[in-house]
Design a protein around this nucleic acid. Sequence first.
RNA 1: GGCCCCAUCGUCUAACGGCUAGGACGUCGGGUUUUCAUCCCGGAAAUAGGGGUUCGAUUCCCCUUGGGGUCACCA
Length: 482
Amino acid sequence: MSKTKQAVRTRFAPSPTGFLHVGAARTALFAWLLARQQNGSFILRIEDTDKKRQIEGAEEHIIKTLRALGLDYDEGPDSDAEHGPYRQSERLDTYQQWAQTLVASGRAYADPYTSEEVADFREQAQAKRQPFLFRNHRPDSPPEWDGSMPLRFKSEPKSYEWHDEVMGDLSTGPEVIDDFVIMKSDGFPTYNFAHIIDDHEMSITHIIRGQEFIASVPNYLNLYEALDLPVPVMATMPPILGPDGKKKLSKRDGAKDLLEYLDDGYLPEALISFIATLGWNDGTTQEIFTTEELIKRFSLAGVGKGGATFDEARLRWVNGHFIRNLSVDEVYEKAKSYLPEEASSKDEQYNKSVIACLQERLKYLSEIPELSMFFYKDLPIDLSLINDHKKLKKYDAEQLISLLKVSRETICDVEVFTAGNITAALNQLLTDTEEKPVVLFSLIRIAITQAPASPALADTIAVLGKDTVSKRIDEQISALKS
RNA sequence: GGCCCCAUCGUCUAACGGCUAGGACGUCGGGUUUUCAUCCCGGAAAUAGGGGUUCGAUUCCCCUUGGGGUCACCA
């Protein structure tokens, strides 16, 4: 008799209090990977039980980010699947019912104290350098709960040992178990209560979350028992640290909105690969993974226990790698919206050639305007490019002018204007003039771009075209004359 | 402070007691007909410290140190 294996159901449950940064995105990604790998379901649940902290538009922003990353969810606030609603603020009746069950069984009681009184208790404990435990102040005969005061879980302190798919076997003593608030006086449940009810009602099988919750797990276990509910598989993610490698990554010290990276032209697949390898690896030396590979190879056991520092330089490398692996047409599709305004006056063929020249040197797409400017307009002549050049500065103006003149003629004489033919002509010019490439090519490159850096010379010339090249060389000659 | 968790190059990590601790990013040096980039070659760079266990510890145990989390009517 083999029981049918329960379908894997994972969830990502953000509170709508802001944007998604890499830490949250990684939690979402791992939950998503697990669901996709097991042919399970990935659920998005909005934990909006704290109206004070809520930020307007945050839910839409989070959804937009998940979509942009390709982390599609099977059930969520904008779907009406059987386990909904998927916004906690729309599930208050459910929490109310479960809370009443606990009241009825004597496992929950009204907290009669004012918040000032509780704060006093807490301060007393702190003064004694003791952890604060509400259960030390449990009222003898609590009033009947009418919803106007917080409802607390009546815990049964005991030791726990449990297994965490990432952290391994964990254990705690009874001293960490306490009577935590399950329903707030505003009628909303706390996270601590709501998520347990929801995970159960939504048939969640695997809970993947950040380590800030690990200390609360024993209390959750105590509540699961009181409710007589099965405990889902739990996996705790190690923290992602800020650039200093100390503090947890937070919005304050540089954690950026994932959407910003996307807007800057970091490719979703690159972001996914980078985020996945921040803490996870499959035991091989592979550095870059396609999303398909991740779905195949991911496992919670491969997630490390230690915190990882977010390294933007590495992200740039990963992204550049993904950009270089694209075909010219693919890069063009992704990159064309980043082209400078002036590109609209050029045809698609031209713009595509520009992107092709840039492809191997792009780290992210929003670098395009800066790197492509000279393809679209004449930059002002900058004589310092010649005067400060380690070789060219040894030549006088007349020598440079005559070199530029023969160069222009040679280039203009090329019949079929392709990079290959241009290269051949330039090579011939090299032997004719008996100049070193560093002199001749640098000179031409500076004349036609006026930029400190540019793609390969023949490619650049081919894209710019005979007229522009000829005109710009003439302008350089005039500038050298004066 | 109590409790819990974590600890390999600057960074991401490999090595589930056994080769000179491997790879990658970054960095430094060199090469590819100029520049930037790509690509290739090479260098520097780590097991936090101390005790055990063992023929042998990055790996297992203990202590110390360091870091993180938590102790909310936030999640």
